Computed example of a mutant assay.
Amino acid sequence: MYSDQEIIALGEAVLARSLPKAAWTHAAHCAACIYLLRERRDIDVAVELPGIIWRYNEVSGTANTDADGYHETITRFYIAAVKAYLAQVPAGRALSEIVAGFMASPLGARDLPLKFWSKERLMSVEARRVWVAPDRAALDFKPLLSTVS
């Protein structure tokens, strides 16, 4: 998937708002979040990631609107999922192994939020603007972490 150097470069390019738009995939979002949480202790990811993504979108030509761009609930969800995953990862694991493991796990699935939210609620303007609690199932990552080694 990505080498350690590619993950570092990806995370730093998002911070610098220089990542090509075509490279800003679901996997890149997850890899950047893992990098920031694991390696950039100077950044309070829960507080700063929304603004980082918002500003990156503006520079890359993605409008942050009620229908496109930054999505608060999905961002907060994946921050929590990555934190849960990282808490289970043995010390000393390479960034590339962590990202590959996360993406291969149920937590890395692009459609995972739909296990917890109905599509209507998750895609609502409210969920895009602010955190909206799940309406299908309580957030519990433990059953999804059973494959982490």
Rank of each mutant, 00 (worst) to 15 (best):
V130M: 11
G92N: 12
A22F: 11
G108N: 02
A9E: 09
A80Q: 12
W131R: 02
V47S: 15
E58K: 11
A91G: 09
A31F: 00
V125G: 05
A16I: 10
W117D: 01
N57H: 14
A94S: 13
Q5N: 10
L19R: 06
T25L: 15
I74L: 08
R110K: 14
A63Y: 03
P90Y: 03
Y35F: 15
L10N: 03
S146D: 07
L19Y: 01
W117I: 04
P134G: 03
K21N: 12
L107W: 01
Y70L: 15
H29F: 13
L122I: 01
Y2D: 00
L36I: 07
L15F: 04
V14N: 03
I53T: 03
K83T: 12
T75A: 07
A32T: 15
D66Q: 15
A84I: 04
R40K: 07
A100Q: 12
A22G: 09
Y35E: 04
L107F: 04
V82T: 05
L10V: 04
A100M: 02
K115R: 15
R38T: 10
D140A: 11
H26Q: 04
T75W: 05
I79A: 12
W131N: 10
V59D: 05
L49Q: 10
E58T: 08
K21D: 12
D135P: 01
L19S: 00
N64V: 12
